[in-house]
Design a protein around this nucleic acid. Structure first.
Lengths: 199, 199
DNA sequence: ACTGTAGGCCAACAAGTGTTGACACGCCAG
DNA sequence: CTGGCGTGTCAACACTTGTTGGCCTACAGT
């Protein structure tokens, strides 16, 4: 309880910059990489601290415990683009392209997937992220907002499935297929899930 | 090295039945459940042994080490049906239906997914299984055998993505959607991946 | 009946885990 | 200058992990 005032939410944007901000950022970056590469259990606090070049006890002081660190490290923005501007017939292709980009931009999404599969807190985090960020976008382009959640789930299943096969499991054909070919195959699927009438 | 003669491959079908076969089976069953529920790291040998009602050291004697146990516990048969008999236009629906059945029959596939995502040996195992069991079936129904691997990867991505969303991550809409509705949505996707001309 | 051996349990090992508390340095306000 | 506080290290804790070796029991072959 001693360091409570220090350890509590650093998310306050109006907070004065602290001298330790660089360390905090280094910890977070190292944590993201380790969680992405190893999953929750095998990503040890000691390894993360070593990567960040500091003592493991600092991680505890700044983030409370391992779960707190994970929570802080897994604040994810899918950065889904506005779909209002793109022609309704192309939203599938735009979405697939975006997710391929997003997945290759950094290893945050791979980490989310690795942790979400073996850790209930990670799974809950994924549900929140997709509900909050993909849900509204789907609701904006599908015919009847009432079945937007179902359509979003279908879209998520295909997007996540491809990411799983290509970036995590590394199925040879999925991992080596060209980006354009992949888009050509997946875009119609996503398009149909988004806009086709209920089968 | 002492028990080498006992610990070596029990897969030999012409082997005399041993008194310990019941114990071996109990260990394997407990291991499958634990791996499925907890993933590789959190499924401890001690917990598996407790479930099987024996001492942890027995696991070591019969399966060498944890990885050997996993190898033995993850011999998986997808039980994909012969598609030669079904009309070419229905293979998508048949395949989706089968995989939903197979996934709900036991928790072996969920375990495979949980372990494959965080463990390289598990990933390799998944690649083998899908290549050996899904590959030939796809090659049998798709127009040009040359691009069968790509089509199989696409099929796998959608199948695994749905299993991930529905059975592992438990996305609310994906987990609660009715089986028939799910088939109606997914079957055309699989059908297209299998038989449509290259886009 | 006797003996070897397979089946099983117990206790322990070394290593690694998350986590904690005490202590040292250096900055900044008073 | 001096005190307090933020930043950081060190050493240790209690615990769990995979794994090992010794010992006991009971069955099977002779």
């Amino acid at each position: 309880m001693k360091h409570e005032a220090v350890a509590d939410t650093p998310a306050d944007p109006a907070h004065a910059p602290r001298r330790s901000d660089a360390t905090r950022a280094a910890i977070l970056e190292a944590a993201r990489e380790r969680f992405a590469a190893d999953g929750y259990e095998r990503a040890t606090i000691r390894a993360i601290a070593r990567d960040a070049g500091i003592d493991p006890s600092m991680v505890m002081r700044y983030y409370g415990n391992k779960e707190g660190l994970f929570t802080a490290a897994s604040e994810i923005d899918l950065r889904i683009p506005r779909l209002g501007a793109v022609p309704a017939r192309h939203v599938g292709a735009v979405l697939v392209t975006h997710f391929l980009d997003r997945w290759e931009a950094d290893d945050v999404l791979t980490g989310m997937l690795r942790v979400g599969v073996t850790n209930e807190a990670g799974a809950e985090r994924m549900r929140e992220i997709f509900k909050a960020q993909l849900g509204p976008v789907v609701a904006g382009v599908c015919p009847d907002p009432a079945d937007a959640p179902r359509r979003a789930a279908l879209v998520a299943s295909q997007i996540l499935g491809m990411a799983l096969a290509r970036y995590v499991l590394r199925f040879p054909p999925a991992a080596t297929m060209s980006r354009d070919e992949l888009i050509a195959w997946l875009a119609p699927t996503i398009q149909r899930y988004l806009t086709a009438k209920q089968p």
